[in-house]
Structure formats: structure tokens, C-alpha cells
Design a binder for these strands. Structure first.
Length: 118
DNA sequence: GCAATGACGCTCT
DNA sequence: CAGAGCGCCATTG
């Protein structure tokens, strides 16, 4: 076993990301809130970047609030993330954006904005 | 323990 | 609608 112990906040973040179904995406802020760390969106990205080797989580399903793949030090990772998502059926528009209205993950129990219209 | 870092978000221009 | 600026907060050196 690795001697690296994951901090509680990170463990909760990983737990939330693991729940995101294939073909859906969640924003950093959304994951933070669901992990009980509202306002700590940056830490989500930081945590994913520091994901220990060995544990596999669908990190590609986390995007920014604009529905785009966040800029990364290594541009190759941006391409890799986009391809993984497209392989799951997530469509990008011509400007490289994912329509969050359509692909955002809505956890069971979360009130939908559309329902307020009825 | 303080200062810098970072796969972010919201607001104002 | 795109870009710039400031705020946030856990982890690291």
C-alpha cells in the first residue's frame, strides 16, 4: 500500500467525482459544494492534479463553469480529456464548449431549474 | 507559521 | 459575448 495518506477534503472530493456517471459532467464548483467544501472550487482542480497513482477516478468529467476544459500546463492533457469525454458521448460545440444545460450531472434529489417553471 | 501556488468562480468592463 | 480583475481556500515549501 502507498504510505501516502489522502487528506479528508481530498477524499471527499474523490468520492464525489467517482459518482459522476459516464456521459455527464460536473463543474469544479459543483463538486466542491457536493463534497461539503462550497467555495473551494480551486481545491477540486488541485486535488485532481494530485490524484495518487493507483486510484482511478473519472477526472475527465470535471470541467469549469463555462463548460470548457480548463487550461493545463501540458496542452496534451486537455486533448486527452476532451477525447475521453467524446468517447463517452459528450458533444462539444464548434467553440469547444459543452452545453451544460444538457450534459451537467444532476444528482438524485437535486432540484432542477426547469421544474421551477412548472 | 507565513507566503506563494493553483485543472476555479463571479462580477464588472 | 469575451477578457480582466479580485475573491476563495486547502496544500506546499
Amino acid at each position: 500500500m502507498s504510505g501516502m495518506k489522502v487528506s479528508e477534503p481530498y477524499a471527499r472530493i474523490y468520492a464525489v467525482v467517482k459518482r459522476i456517471p459516464a456521459g455527464r459532467v460536473a463543474t469544479y464548483g459543483q463538486v466542491a459544494a457536493l463534497a461539503g467544501l462550497a467555495g473551494a472550487a480551486r481545491q477540486v482542480g488541485y486535488a485532481l492534479n494530485a490524484t495518487p497513482r493507483g486510484i482511478r477516478i473519472p477526472w475527465q468529467r470535471v470541467v469549469n463553469a463555462q463548460g470548457t476544459v480548463s487550461r493545463r500546463a501540458d496542452p496534451d492533457d486537455e486533448i486527452r480529456q476532451r477525447r475521453l469525454l467524446e468517447a463517452e458521448g459528450v458533444r462539444f460545440d464548434p467553440r469547444g464548449r459543452i452545453p451544460l444545460d444538457r450534459y451537467r450531472w444532476k444528482p438524485r434529489g437535486t432540484p432542477r431549474a426547469e421544474d421551477d417553471l412548472f
